[in-house]
Design a protein around this nucleic acid. Structure first.
Lengths: 251, 251
DNA sequence: AAGTGGTCTAGACCACCGC
DNA sequence: CGGTGGTCTAGACCACTTA
């Protein structure tokens, strides 16, 4: 275990507060893997002694890491490295949940089956959305997503060709496209805006989802924004609403 | 200015922590208007002396109110009641927007027409939701909400009678019920959880909204949580989806 | 009973603001 | 300069969990 030298004494001289240094030291241990997911941390007093600060200072650092989701603290038990974090990043932008609310831990990320792929000229709406010249091209993908063998939704993805060149050489997009955008093109999706509506399922959608004709489905119209603030993906999903729902929390 | 008696001494006996009582006392002053938007609060030490607690305890209460957006604190200046909150707070939990996206500033808050009101025994689901004894009672309200003369949604509100006594003396609930909960009962809604589905409108709903039979509508099942983490309101709204949508942003 | 996190206190000093 | 919030400490006691 890598030794960590005692932090500076109380004087902080217009620099970082001491608890911030403590937090960084502790986050470092998480990153370096000294403390692994699920593992219990030493007690507040043990950490305080080791780093040469008071318990209260360690408390504040641990509190911040807890509200950030890195740690889980339970009175009488101890402080633990949050292991559900790894999974939850998968579900960051995925708000659909089965009605029979199984525990979040065991959830499986939905799989994808691609139905179609096309490169075509952007229509006026798409030109406006992606700020494209007339005649520029966009990719269209349609895919069916399923969770535990049950079909969940049919969705259309639209990507501007100029930010995603060379896609024609791919046989299919991978299942987790946002990870792919980052790994292949350096495009990090920072936030998404969604508009939700209830609509009547078109025939081919109700067929794919195994719904009866004219069944109501949830339409999610999503625009995904990269770190530079530009739209990088437009997505319209039609989701079954008989066994699934969209959950949201407002604060 | 209403005098506030000193809070209990350090012993808290399995009840609320002291800083929570301090926070409630301070929130009470905001609600009652003793402290008005933009006004500067007394110093931490002054509040601590008055309430008979230590500065650190007041700090924790002020910190929570700050992260909740009620207060603004500036080093060297003081602590102030947040005044920018007032407008946006109206739409804090209201995510429905007209499709013809007029500017947000000029939006009118939807009006309410109450359709029914009843006090009845809680069914098993309601008992479970509000953690009620068998035989406890709940209020049911049904109302139609409209924006600019157009009917938007029909919703059912369920409130536990034990947290909302004396409601039968009211002719109707006001339009902005969350403000009413705070002003009348000191209940601050801190967050809400929503589940969204697409459903087929029941006959009486499609009639109220002027939709054709079996039109798809957006169902929003909302549980509102008070500062103490307990559920204080259950609400199921059925919203027209032909001219409105639910907007959401994920980061 | 022992060990953990949670709360509370009293006091000290620092950094920032406005007069 | 005086007053404000921001940080830090040392010590005390409480509440919860596990053995």
């Amino acid at each position: 275990m890598a030794a960590i030298e005692p932090l500076d004494a109380p004087q902080r001289l217009a620099a970082q507060p001491l608890y911030a240094k403590v937090r960084e030291a502790l986050v470092g241990r998480l990153i370096s893997g000294i403390w692994k997911p699920g593992q219990m941390l030493p007690s507040e007093f043990a950490i305080a002694d080791e780093l040469g600060v008071s318990q209260g200072t360690v408390r504040k650092a641990l509190y911040e890491m807890t509200s950030q989701g890195l740690l889980i603290r339970r009175q009488g038990r101890g402080t633990f490295v949050n292991e559900s974090e790894d999974k939850s990043i998968l579900f960051r932008f995925y708000r659909l949940t089965s009605d029979d609310e199984q525990n979040v831990e065991s959830r499986s990320f939905p799989q994808s089956k691609y139905l179609s792929r096309a490169l075509q000229s952007a229509n006026p709406q798409e030109q406006d959305l992606f700020n494209l010249e007339s005649g520029a091209q966009v990719w269209h993908f349609e895919r069916l997503r399923s969770e535990n063998e049950q079909p969940i939704l049919v969705e259309k993805l639209v990507l501007p060709q100029n930010r995603f060149p060379d896609l024609d050489e791919q046989k299919d997009l991978p299942n987790n496209v946002y990870r792919f955008y980052g790994a292949q093109y350096g495009i990090i999706v920072a936030r998404v805006e969604e508009k939700l509506r209830a609509v009547t399922a078109p025939a081919h959608v109700s067929k794919h989802l195994g719904l009866k004709v004219n069944a109501p489905v949830l339409e999610i119209d999503r625009r995904a924004y990269a770190l530079d603030g530009k739209i990088v993906e437009w997505r319209v999903s039609l989701c079954r609403s008989d066994t699934m729902h969209y959950r949201n929390e407002l604060k």
